[in-house]
Design a protein around this nucleic acid. Structure first.
Length: 598
RNA sequence: UGCCCGAUGGUGUAAUGGUAGCACGAACGACUCUGACUCGUUCUGUCUAGGUUCGACUCCUAGUCGGGCAGCCA
């Protein structure tokens, strides 16, 4: 977790931040508490990054806290693998930016019985840090909705006592029939008018495991004729005789999202509960549960915003899972995927992801964001921070005929021209070098600045060379380009200022490193793969190209997490899984902008 | 064809009854030991029709178009 030296970008306001600011001004909450509540059933992607940056952003702007909470109320889908990856990804994304706002709870802690305003209540606070910004103790852990099952059960009992919930014996099919349709009112369940005593008895027996899966459910008693389908006596609990990855085998009844989520927010003292637009119809239910329990503390409120939809990418967990299962990609962390682990492995800095999702803004309009906005944020960050190195992806041999074999000419290469006081490193020019195949054309197209027969070009950081002659094999392919080096055009030499139109990169053929380099391109060929009949049919067959490149020797020490600009090519990082000193593997995060290619 | 939500350039977003701005993108140009970066110029917008008002992107009405809602998923 390195410090982020990015100057604090001005945070644009939005309608949610306006609401929070008004609540702060009115002192409606003792503290601003938000939460990021993923279900641990998949990996986090860049869409989640928008939610993370909103929730943590609001917390940090108000000296508040944002709890990481696993919304794990469906044991059929959730796995420990996902809680681990999600925890890692969240911490990576906010490191150096909002890590001091991350809300974790003491290990093993459950909501405590407390008294609030003279009333019995439950509450679970995040660990309190000795000083603001101090690191979380190793004993802290994320919040889990499944830690609230006891409290949730007590609240359900209370709802029953208040006559607001009942045990229903309808099966799933009949429940659906009774619910009616959006343009047709539903019908009351025949079990809607059971006595409180009978409901209490039945619900306790549900918990005790007396009934099979689906035999009964606990339902809210709201309005079967409501125009809002989510108010037609929605289920609160279902019976599932399966163990839970976190709660163990204790339960066979599990709460549903709409019941668990609002109460989880309440238990944690959440002030603002932010979710995406598809939950708008659920908001009335969120409020109903909280309001009908007579809770003593201030209630959290739900606000909704539009999801991020970038072009040329697929964001739903279900679809990403399919790409993984059908081996279109190599795993959840394949660098072509928009998962946070994939983006990290590809070499995308967390700060660029943050900058991107923040720049997109927060509204209630379902929009599609041009992926170019993301690419711009990545380039802007990497241009500022990445050290420059020389590397040749598709090497062609070039011989400097006036330079004796074995002689080396010391040159100084700038590490990052964007630094206020750029430093340099030595690179050695030798008789034989590699240049990029693209940088030579026997028959140059119009306006070609690079090397051509009889032409001159500068070898970056070295000198100007002139192309004298080509050596070809029997098939006519160029095997060697023979040039003369104009050594007096080196930096500090009399003709250093001589101008040529083109400058190309190079690597010494006798002092270089072989490396596998993975060149990634968009995974899909169309802007909205999700709108295609079958997104499998619009997968880009050229999304990955692997080359054996020649690298300048200093790249031997490259470490995972370091990012480099290979000059004139793009930004690259060692692959976290496959790269080793003996066999370096680099991933291309993104190319440089290339006006010439167009 | 019930209810809810939304609509500003190619894209995203700002303007909260008072000059429609910013960013991405595109085109052209300058600069350049990265055809990068940087800089300059240009491009394109308030869904429609009424109404309120001195004045409407903003408020009202109707329409059009788009999205959402009928899991014992979240």
């Amino acid at each position: 977790m390195s410090a982020d030296l990015t100057p604090p970008a001005p945070v644009p306001t939005d309608f949610i931040r306006d609401i929070v600011a008004a609540d702060v001004a009115a002192q409606r909450h003792a503290k601003i508490v938000t939460r990021f509540p993923p279900e641990p059933n998949g990996y986090l992607h860049i869409g989640h990054a928008k939610s993370i940056c909103l929730n943590f952003g609001i917390a940090r702007e108000h000296g508040g806290v944002c709890n990481l909470r696993f919304d794990d109320t469906n044991p059929a889908k959730e796995e420990i693998e996902y809680v681990e990856s999600i925890t890692t990804d969240v911490q990576w994304l906010i490191a150096g930016w909002a890590d001091h706002c991350l809300g974790f709870k003491p290990q093993g802690a459950h909501p405590a019985k407390v008294t609030s305003h003279g009333q019995p209540d439950y509450y679970l606070a995040p660990v309190s840090l000795p000083a603001p910004g101090s690191p979380l103790p190793a004993s802290a852990e994320p919040f889990y909705a499944s830690d609230y099952f006891d409290a949730l059960y007590e609240y359900a009992l209370e709802l029953i006592r208040r006559g607001q919930a009942y045990v229903c014996d309808l099966n799933a099919e009949d429940t659906e029939k009774y619910r009616g349709a959006p343009d047709r009112p539903g019908q009351d369940s025949p079990f809607r008018h059971r006595s409180v005593a009978e409901n209490l008895d039945l619900f306790q027996r549900m918990k005790a495991g007396e009934f099979p899966d689906g035999a009964r459910s606990l339902r809210s008693k709201i309005d079967m004729a409501s125009p809002n389908m989510w108010l037609r006596d929605p289920l609160l609990y279902r019976i599932r005789h399966i163990p839970h990855y976190h709660a163990g085998a204790k339960w066979c009844i599990y709460p549903l999202y709409d019941y668990a989520h609002c109460l989880s927010d309440y238990l944690e003292g959440v002030s603002h509960s932010l979710c995406s637009l598809e939950f708008v119809p659920h908001r009335a239910l969120y409020d109903w549960v909280l309001e009908n329990l007579g809770l003593p503390r201030p209630l959290p409120h739900q606000y909704e915003f539009a999801k991020l939809v970038p072009t040329y990418t697929l964001l739903s967990k279900r679809n990403i899972l399919r790409l993984v299962q059908e081996k279109v990609v190599a795993g959840w962390d394949d660098p072509r995927l928009p998962t946070l682990s994939g983006l990290r492995r590809r070499g995308i800095p967390a700060s660029a992801i943050r900058q991107f999702v923040i720049s997109v803004g927060v509204t209630t309009f379902n929009s599609v964001t041009d992926i170019a906005v993301f690419e711009h944020a990545v380039r802007e960050e990497l241009n500022r921070t990445a050290a420059r190195r020389l590397a040749v992806l598709r090497p062609v041999k070039l011989v400097l005929t006036n330079l004796p074999a074995g002689e080396t000419i010391a040159c100084a290469a700038v590490n990052n021209p964007q630094d206020e006081t750029p430093t340099t490193r030595p690179v050695a020019l030798t008789r034989e070098v590699f240049i990029e195949a693209d940088d030579f054309a026997e028959v140059p197209p119009p306006k070609y600045f690079r090397l051509k027969p009889g032409g001159e070009v500068r070898l970056k950081y070295a000198c100007i060379i002139k192309c004298d002659e080509l050596v070809k094999d029997a098939a006519g392919a160029i095997t060697e380009i023979r040039c003369t080096a104009q050594l007096d055009t080196r930096h500090g030499q009399p003709n250093a200022d001589k101008k040529v139109k083109g400058t190309i990169h190079w690597v010494s053929a006798t002092d270089c490193l072989d490396a596998e380099v993975r060149l990634y391109d968009r995974l899909f060929t169309v802007p909205e793969p999700g709108a295609a009949e079958d997104f499998m049919k619009v997968v880009n067959p050229k999304s990955l190209e692997v080359v054996t490149a020649k690298l300048e020797p200093s790249l031997a020490g490259a470490k995972v997490g370091e990012r480099f600009q290979f000059e004139r090519l793009g930004y690259f990082t060692p692959d976290a899984k496959d790269s080793s000193p003996a066999k370096p593997v680099f991933n291309r995060a993104i190319t440089l902008r290339d006006a010439w290619a167009k």
